Amino acid sequence: MRQVSPQDPDDPVEQAIAWAVRLQLHGPLPATLQALRQWRDADARHETAWQRIAAMQGQLSGLPPDASRATLDASLARRRQRRQSLKLVAAFGVTGTGAWLVLDSRADYRTGTGQRLAVTLPDGSLLNLNAGTAVNVRYDGARRLLTLLRGEIAVTTGIDPLRRPFRVDTDTARMQALGTRFTVRRLEDGAVPLTRLTVQQDAVQMQATAASAEPVLARAGDALLTDGMRIWRDQDRHDDPAAWLDGVIVAREMPLGRLVAELARHRHGLLQCDADIAQLPISGVFQLGDPERALRVLLQTQAIVAVYRTRFWVTLKKA
């Protein structure tokens, strides 16, 4: 399939995006902010490109006010600064990536774009974090508690001599492991945030956060969803929820839009597809460590093209 070539790296828009990604990866370091200011002042086209990037469409993603004031032109009104910088962050798909702009800096463990992490907890339990994840860990004399703030985790519980319950909480669910191996993911790309629980071994008890909710027992092979009010079985099983532990996405008739969203968690910049091809069913195994190769496979096997606005900003379109 035809692939549209990226723009010239000297293009001001591409340079502006590179600056935004640099801030995303390394945070608002004084030297970086000073160098960005010098670049913007060096050429009127640079300032125009930066303002263009700042005005990109996107959904709010929680940029800290201090960061927004530091990275946008001080001559703009503070409210406008914050609005534009929020759009900038969302335009690069930062939401869910673990970058400095969106993840709670107080999290005990966190990962960024394309990062995965394995942690051995004090009781010998194994905690794995997928890309764009933040989690807090609280162990005391009465409990073992993980709070998933963002993203996705896999847990293999250890044997606790104190027999403390092992729980995982999100904003919509409370889960208690019953000697088990399971994954939990926060799904926040829809109108209502959801928690998805999948059990690979033994059982987990899930309870929605609503006071009247009854707990539901999930056994090996089960997948449950909750919006905080009710719990239901996940019938939309287009992937292997634990495949990321092996560094792959296993897609089974997965809508292209969902596959692209998964790849975007492991690729810096903005990766998206047009709505008219978002439901195209895709099957295959894709390496998380090489999203560019996954894109090449899609371009070679599907009637689609990749349009590069810059090397960081790619949109898949119908051929």
Rank of each mutant, 00 (worst) to 15 (best):
S5V: 12
V13L: 14
Q15C: 08
I17A: 14
A18F: 07
Q24G: 15
G27Y: 08
P28D: 07
T32R: 04
L33M: 08
Q34E: 14
R37L: 06
R37Y: 06
R37G: 05
Q38P: 06
W39Y: 04
A42N: 01
A42K: 05
A44P: 11
H46E: 00
Q51A: 00
I53R: 02
Q59N: 14
L60K: 06
S61C: 14
G62A: 10
D66E: 13
A67C: 11
S68Y: 08
L72M: 15
L72Y: 13
R80T: 12
R82Y: 13
R82N: 08
F92W: 03
L101K: 04
L103Q: 10
Y109N: 00
T111E: 05
T111M: 00
T113P: 00
R116Q: 09
R116K: 06
V119R: 10
G124R: 00
L126R: 15
L126Q: 15
L127H: 07
N128E: 15
N130I: 03
A131T: 07
A131L: 03
A131P: 04
T133C: 10
A134Y: 03
D140M: 06
A142K: 13
A142E: 15
A154P: 06
Q176D: 10
A177R: 05
G179Q: 01
T183M: 01
V184S: 03
R186V: 12
V192L: 07
P193M: 01
R196W: 03
T198N: 14
Q200R: 14
D202S: 15
D202N: 14
A203R: 12
A203I: 05
M206V: 12
T209W: 11
A210V: 07
L217W: 07
G221C: 09
L224E: 00
G228F: 00
M229V: 14
R230P: 08
I231S: 05
D234T: 04
D240T: 08
D240E: 14
A243G: 10
I249K: 06
I249P: 10
R252C: 11
M254Q: 12
M254F: 09
L256M: 06
A261V: 02
R265E: 00
H266W: 11
H266C: 08
R267G: 01
P281G: 03
S283M: 08
Q287E: 15
D290N: 13
E292W: 09
R296N: 11
A303R: 11
I304S: 00
V305L: 14
A306C: 07
V307G: 05
Y308R: 05
R309M: 08
R309H: 10
T310R: 01
T310S: 02
R311Y: 02
L316C: 02
K318L: 15
A319Q: 12
